[in-house]
């Protein structure tokens, strides 16, 4: 047994010769399935969303289809190239590339710094570690103490920005109840429900659940207070988001699939590949 000094207090810390079997892992179960599935799904999503972001078309199904559906990848549509009617919140005149490239950086940043996704990609992509009690894939390790991983600490700012996006996507979901049509050159609209409406409403709902279940949200709601008794309102908020937080992983995956499905569905409708079934009142 040898000792070395603790870097902060100078207290000796035991560092002995490790015994036990010298093997990367003794596990014989299928621990590798989870990282493999995670890599497959996240890679598929990245490939699809990159293609969808760069393609720059078929992201809005408007009056020509009797619908008002916009892909979540392209909302808010603020580029010069946005098609008419696509829920513009103003236009950036200098941006002539795909509108999605302006937008996706924020959801991407939120998910990249999310405490759940960090676990998922540290395990599956970085093998640090690939699974519990399976050897780390790297010789040295400094965690999130240095650049660039120290930037994970800005997660809370992406959380606040995502709340704005959630409001916009909720607005889109409400507008999806519109079914516009043109008579004598004048646009009118019915109020109705289509599959596209349900898809966008579900997408917005799951994005809200994912955001509200975020650990940073739980911290702001009440996690940061020293005494719940002195902050009863924040305690109530904390009690509201805590059960959501326990399901953060589930909402992270569902909302990920949700945005991809919503984009794909709008794309299929906007390109005329499928008809969006629905009815109006």
């Amino acid at each position: 047994m040898t000792t070395t000094a603790d870097s902060v207090t100078g207290t000796p810390v035991a560092i002995g010769t490790r015994g036990g079997p010298d093997q990367p892992t003794l596990r014989k179960d299928t621990w590798w399935v989870e990282p493999v599935v995670t890599v497959a799904v996240l890679t598929a999503f990245v490939v699809y969303s990159t293609w969808a972001a760069f393609v720059g078309k078929d992201y809005y199904a408007g009056t020509a289809f009797g619908r008002d559906l916009i892909s979540p990848f392209y909302s808010p549509c603020i580029a010069n190239s946005c098609v008419p009617g696509s829920h513009s919140f103003g236009t950036l005149p200098f941006w002539n590339y795909s509108p999605a490239l302006l937008i996706l950086i924020f959801p991407l940043g939120f998910r990249l710094t999310c405490y759940y996704y960090r676990k998922a990609y540290y395990r599956s992509f970085w093998w640090s570690p690939p699974a519990c009690a399976v050897a780390d894939g790297h010789r040295s390790y400094s965690g999130e103490t240095r650049f660039p991983l120290i930037l994970q600490n800005i997660h809370r700012y992406f959380f606040w920005i995502l709340l704005i996006f959630n409001c916009i996507l909720t607005y889109d979901a409400v507008l999806a109840f519109r079914q516009p049509y043109v008579v004598n050159g004048v646009e009118h609209s019915h109020i109705g429900i289509s599959v596209g409406t349900v898809v966008l409403v579900a997408n917005a709902a799951f994005l809200w659940l994912y955001s509200l279940s975020c650990h940073a949200c739980r911290h702001f709601c009440g996690g940061q207070v020293k005494s719940f008794a002195k902050h009863p309102t924040r305690h109530k908020l904390w009690k509201f988001v805590t059960p959501l937080n326990a399901r953060h992983m589930r909402f992270a995956w569902i909302s990920l699939f949700g945005v991809a499905i919503a984009d794909l569905y709008v794309r299929l409708v906007a390109s005329g590949t499928i008809h969006d079934p629905g009815f109006h009142f």
């Binding site: 676990k119 640090s128 400094s142 965690g143 999130e144 991983l149 120290i150």
Partner: peptide
């Protein structure tokens, strides 16, 4: 005491 070294892989 090294909290930043934890990469929250939850083992």
């Amino acid at each position: 005491k090294g909290l930043g070294m934890c990469n929250i892989t939850k083992c």
